[in-house]
Amino acid sequence: MIGIGIDIGSVATKGIIINGDKQCRAMVPTGWSPRDAGQAIIDQLLDLSGIERQEVEHIFVTGYGRVAFEQADKTITEIKCHARGIAELYPEVRTIIDIGGQDSKVIRVGEEGRVLDFAMNDKCAAGTGRFLQVMATALGLDVSELGQSEEPARNLSISSMCTVFAESEIIGLLARGNDKGGIIAGLHQSVGKRVAAMARRMGIKEQVAFTGGVAINLGVKRALEEEIGCMVIVSEACQYTGALGAALLASQL
């Protein structure tokens, strides 16, 4: 059965099409219209796979934009989709840490991707991709450059969790002549601390996987490993975990 899974996130929209053992994936910026982004993903996936729209049995949609997308045969939460996606990639994983554009979550999973418990950050950009994006702008960098620009040995700890206050704090640090590398390491530490606290509250069970767009940032991975005291697994397709889960459920695999 041919199925499409789409994860409409606050920053990027990701999609995967599954046809038997063949998979294609695509990603576009969500922009202001989750509906248009979803449509663009479907078009790209059909293009890439050479499959016709009417051959697709189900389209399952997750992510914050899921409710705005009328073509969805079913909407599923990010929590269930991440659990399903990880079960496919790393069946031994028992804790998932997902940091996306506007929220972060910790999911405890059992066998076959069954969700046992979860926690999400509340109403605040602290510990999310948005936090890093604002800080990157203040440092004159693109968010994708943060990971390679950090200098953990010169880590300057950032005490503000709040995005607005942290921005003024790093402007102050720059004004006092501190270099970017140490500040960036401090920012990564700040995100790691925040998310690790949420994970510890729920209880961390190994193995631990790190998913979502922020998982691409090796600095946050390093900080997270330091804070929770164990190794975390990052898939090369970490951004696609939710879309993969939705696609697997859509193709009933």
Binding site: Y64, I76, T77, E78, I79, K80, R114, V115, L116, F118, M120
Partner: peptide, 10 residues
């Protein structure tokens, strides 16, 4: 909503 929905999925 997303929290309640995820709990119901469980």
């Amino acid at each position: 909503k997303v929290r309640i929905e995820a709990m119901l999925e469980m």
